[in-house]
Write a protein that binds this DNA or RNA. Structure first.
Lengths: 191, 191
DNA sequence: TATGTTGGCCAACGTTTGTTGACTTCACTC
DNA sequence: GAGTGAAGTCAACAAACGTTGGCCAACATA
């Protein structure tokens, strides 16, 4: 079958995203990706150069975080949690990074960059309280959000999977809200 | 060199734990493990049968969670966070599971089992408030604890790495405390 | 009809993987 | 001192991997 070049490239990229999301970097093979795309493995090399470059193309993505300046300060935690739930469930890009970032250095760096460049600025907008730097707050938010995704979508811990979306929001939003806006607990003052 | 059988087996197991913790299941090769243990790869097979069985032996471990019944109810979150920090930093077993559980089904099941059999009972002891089942509370605790470990020890997000141990406790302990003991936020009642 | 370009397939390469079986070397018992 | 069993080495296996280069067929332009 004969297609336009860009069409084939997009087909390969779709298949690659599926495989990287399901298997992680090492277990997702060029051959399997090519089979999914009904194409010869050598085509993958022709269009993307190498497995590493294919991964770089597949892992390119945007958190699409909305600015939170317009949101009432007391609701920023909830808004962020809802946005991330949408993002995890609607797109496999974060799954690619989570599955690959744990064993692949390139993926880990990419993940760091995404959170530094996309999450940190949004957090900085709403982190009015000066008792902790915005970067620390962003790190804490990331720890809860990624841990939730890990348990719910990757490790599939039954109690976490069984929670409804609204239950998740009711439990996790206050945590994120606190990380975003509350003052840091002061260290105990010895005397 | 000639050694007792059990000694060699232990040497192999040590090397295997190091490699699995550093590289995850797929990237840790039998050959590399054998080289670290200064032994022939075929010895690994003789003693453990297969790579899967070697992994099963290496991933066998105990959270060593203390019972929390004697701990004042208001301090259980802090105690749990401190215990996990000790555990992450003192032993690589949790790192093995975290690095491998994301791509390896056996490791993911093992992880599920450990949290169900070891964390859930301890949580059940202190989860007095009946507005949420103890299993849900355990899942939430796992999400925050594993997310913290992911960001701090695996992905190495700079702001999370740079936090001192005490800072981590001051931020995360209240979260875990709330998951353990606080009443669930009631759903909004439409009228 | 010739020609150059381009999408696609095929066969193979060199390497690495888990795994196997035969062989050697030591320590001990009869 | 011959013989047995276990500890350890060596070489090789089949399979899978990323990657390469050559060949074929369809199209566009002349």
């Amino acid at each position: 079958m004969r297609r336009a070049s860009e069409e084939t490239k997009a087909t390969i990229l779709d298949a690659a995203r599926d495989r990287f999301a399901a298997d992680g970097y090492e277990r997702a093979t060029i051959r399997a990706i090519a089979a999914d795309a009904c194409i010869d493995p050598s085509m993958v090399m022709r269009y993307f150069g190498s497995k590493e470059k294919l991964f770089a193309a597949a892992a390119h993505f945007d958190l699409e975080l909305p600015s939170l300046v317009q949101v009432p300060r007391s609701e920023v935690g909830e808004r962020l949690v809802r946005h991330f739930l949408d993002r995890w469930e609607g797109d496999e890009a974060l799954m690619i990074l989570l599955r690959s970032g744990v064993t692949n250095a390139v993926a880990a760096e990419r993940m760091q960059a995404i959170f530094a460049e996309q999450l940190a600025p949004v957090v900085a907008e709403v982190a009015a309280d000066p008792s902790a730097p915005a970067s620390t707050r962003a790190g804490l938010v990331a720890s809860q959000i990624l841990g939730l995704a890990l348990c719910r979508y990757v490790l599939r811990f039954p109690p976490v999977v069984e929670m409804s979306r609204e239950e998740v929001v009711r439990w996790v939003a206050p945590t994120v809200q606190r990380y975003l806006a509350d003052p840091a607990v002061p260290p105990p003052t010895p005397r």
